[in-house]
Design a protein around this nucleic acid. Structure first.
Lengths: 157, 157
DNA sequence: GTATCTGCAAAGGTTTTGCAAGCTC
DNA sequence: GAGCTTGCAAAACCTTTGCAGATAC
């Protein structure tokens, strides 16, 4: 984590009369150190592995702060668990999700983005955010003998 | 509900060795009679009003069957509750959702659809379905004095 | 010193599930 | 009659929350 990000975080906290704590710092550091789409529990386990014991409740609370401050993006891929990704390290993109193995591929299309803006504007809608996901089978999973699922199953949704 | 749809449903049931029951019929009828984006409880209350007592468990189970058979579309608008919509009465579309009043506006853009297919194909991905939602403020809600929310609040997500 | 934080455990809310009784075919 | 269905209540699940003790400023 860079000094710049640290100052950025402290400023964001101060602006809301929030305090800097070792837990918040550890969570920010962990999040900024990953490029994956992780759920709360992944972050929880990652921190435990680093011998930084933080409760899940604190992780959820901190992720909310980080989302509002623009450090992370919270996304719902439809299986009942939120995913969080480092927003600083990447430009905007959307996701393609394999229904079998759970693999996530990122994509970005300027024209789609442009049209979204246009559609919103045409409808007198003030766009705040969007969610765009493509679900299907990744190359590897299409080649499989259509047996049972592989690793992370796409449950619920 | 047309005779055609009824036969279509019976065929779908037969194909999976499922049985026709009065509950399933009532649920199908209710779903095909609405053009809204409803959650399980809306359908539950609608049926009760018609004096057709069906349990929520049966509604969930039946909606799953109806989704697989192509009668309804199940969608996740990110607030923790699934919405179901009549898929037979409408052509494909996606949704714009007001974060304040919960209003849902449908939209459809051929070029976006085309590009989605292209992106999937470029990545060796076999597309099964997609989810595309625009979140923001509808015209009416932008004009309001930014006080508290109106009716159905967009919680959780 | 006071207001904010943390962790725990319990609550919350929707959706799913086990089971015994009831229906379909 | 065999096997699928239903309804109930309980379970499951992730996420949020109340509270008392701990900590930052």
């Amino acid at each position: 984590m860079t000094t710049k990000h640290l100052r950025q975080f402290k400023d964001a906290l101060k602006q809301d009369s929030l305090r800097m704590t070792s837990q918040r710092l550890a969570i920010l550091d962990d999040v900024l150190g990953s490029e994956e789409h992780r759920e709360c529990d992944d972050i929880y386990l990652s921190l435990r592995q680093k011998k930084v014991p933080v409760s899940r409740a604190t992780i959820y609370r901190t992720l909310d702060i980080l989302e509002k401050a623009g450090f992370v993006r919270k996304m719902d891929i439809g299986d009942g668990r939120f995913r969080y990704e480092n927003k600083l390290a990447q430009t905007h993109h959307d996701h393609m999700i394999c229904l079998k193995c759970g693999k996530i591929i990122e994509f970005m299309d300027r024209e789609i983005e442009r049209r979204q803006d246009q559609i919103a504007s045409d409808n007198g809608f003030h766009l705040v955010k969007h969610s765009h996901q493509l679900y299907g089978l990744c190359g590897a999973c299409q080649d499989l003998p259509a047996a049972e699922d592989q690793s992370a199953p796409a449950s619920k949704a």
